[in-house]
Design a protein around this nucleic acid. Structure first.
Length: 408
DNA sequence: ATCATACCTCCATT
DNA sequence: AAATGGAGGTATG
């Protein structure tokens, strides 16, 4: 195992309210992180494996690198790495801060959204620390092309398969291979589409192959990166309201992305938000559509179904409500609505006991007790539980001790 | 503009 | 056990 070297653990002070890596890495933004050991997440990024743990006060991180590709620093600087951070550690910390987008004050943002939106205030407390990642735009693009008509488990399998077959090997942890995400040029070959089909990508195989060719061959160098939001994060945003439909740069990036194969409005917004730094991008998928109907009055009148017009109207409504970082707020409500996290949603169990008389074929009547247990999602805004949202979790039927017998 | 349909595959549910 | 529907949609008519 001399081929790889593992750095010391280092730590960065971060509260769980500012970043919860478990929720952030499981909420469907990124598809490559693996939880190998208890509470330790790892992912290949920029030629190294980054591993993370978190406690209530810090994020702990370390890297695993290949000695062959990334030889150790000279002895002069390797000496005191435990006390004095060397260049590699500095670089890793910078990567961590960048990837997890740690500059914005998330606690203040939650407070702001809570003060203007009672629904957010109600649902967010169990989903704190969710940040929008600054992922590589190309990786986000391919990942979300894979997401159409798909579920997070399979998307992750597909993306991992893509990296395994087309991405450079970065290292191993416990015999688990970690590959970096393949650049567009790696996916332009003639056999890519059919190979991806064999790998189970379905109709998305063609989308990825075509999009890779467009990006690598038809667009100028740096085309995708240049769609990034150039503005640094501003903790004291100016008073001028966000333009209807978002800033010009966002609208342009969205429009450009729509030219690609397999990229519609939703995928384009995912890339804008999570890969290009446009906080006002609001991807409206089936979950957000459900949320918009349930909590924000959509699904009736003019916006009965999720047409393009409705899609845009939902984005505009959320931007108007939550502002420049509407996409962040949307993602928090999205996570709160995921089945993956349903155990966090407060539930209430209601038990009904009914006496039932059952007349049997032979004329005898049997008295039975039917116990029905229903589970509700507790809704603190509406006191009344919705019957249509209750799910029956258990029914017991017991015949009473002495069944009364009568003549027919 | 809106609507309907096909598209790959996997999985849970019926 | 075979059928159905849904999964973080998009392209086409």
């Amino acid at each position: 195992m001399a081929n790889f070297r593992v750095s010391e653990w280092r730590k960065l002070p971060v509260s769980l309210a500012e970043l919860c890596i478990d929720t952030t890495l499981r909420c469907g933004q990124s598809f490559r992180w693996k939880k190998l050991r208890d509470d330790e997440w790892s992912c290949a990024l920029h030629g190294r494996i980054l591993s993370l743990r978190q406690d209530s006060t810090h994020v702990h991180y370390r890297t695993t690198r290949s000695n062959i590709l990334y030889p150790p620093s000279p002895p002069s600087s390797a000496r005191s790495s435990a006390v004095t951070p060397n260049a590699e550690d500095e670089e890793t910390e910078a990567l961590l801060k960048h990837y997890f987008n740690l500059t914005p004050n998330l606690t203040a943002m939650y407070e702001q959204w809570s003060s203007v939106d009672s629904n957010f205030k109600k649902r967010a407390p169990k989903f704190t620390g969710i940040r929008i990642l600054k992922q590589d735009a190309w990786e986000a693009l391919v990942g979300f092309i894979c997401s159409s008509n798909n579920n997070i488990i399979r998307i992750s399998q597909m993306v991992n398969n893509l990296c395994l077959h087309y991405g450079p090997l970065v290292g191993h942890i416990d015999d688990q291979a970690f590959h970096d995400f393949p650049p567009p040029e790696a996916l332009t070959g003639p056999g890519v589409e059919s190979h991806l089909r064999e790998l189970g990508f379905g109709y998305r195989a063609a989308y990825i192959a075509k999009t890779a060719k467009i990006v690598a061959n038809e667009k100028p160098d740096g085309w995708l990166q240049n769609l990034c939001n150039p503005e640094p994060y501003d903790p004291n945003p100016d008073q001028k309201p966000l333009p209807e439909g978002g800033r010009e740069g966002y609208r342009e990036a969205h429009e450009e992305l729509l030219q690609l194969q397999g990229v519609g409005p939703k995928v384009a917004d995912c890339v804008c938000l999570m890969g290009l730094g446009w906080g006002e991008a609001v991807p409206v998928d089936t979950h957000v559509w459900q949320i918009a109907q349930r909590d924000y009055g959509f699904g009736k009148g003019k916006h009965k179904s999720l047409t393009k017009a409705t899609y845009d109207a939902i984005g505009d409504r959320f931007r108007q409500l939550w502002g420049k970082e509407a996409g962040w707020s949307q993602s928090i409500l999205f996570a709160a609505n995921l089945r993956t996290f349903s155990e966090r949603v407060a539930t209430k169990i209601e038990v009904d006991v009914d006496e039932v008389k059952i007349k049997q074929e032979d004329g005898t009547i049997v008295e039975s007790k039917v116990v029905v247990k229903r589970q509700y999602v507790v809704d603190e805004v509406k006191e009344e539980p919705d019957d249509d949202k209750a799910s029956i979790i258990d029914i017991e039927t017991s015949r009473s001790q002495r069944a009364k017998r009568r003549r027919a």
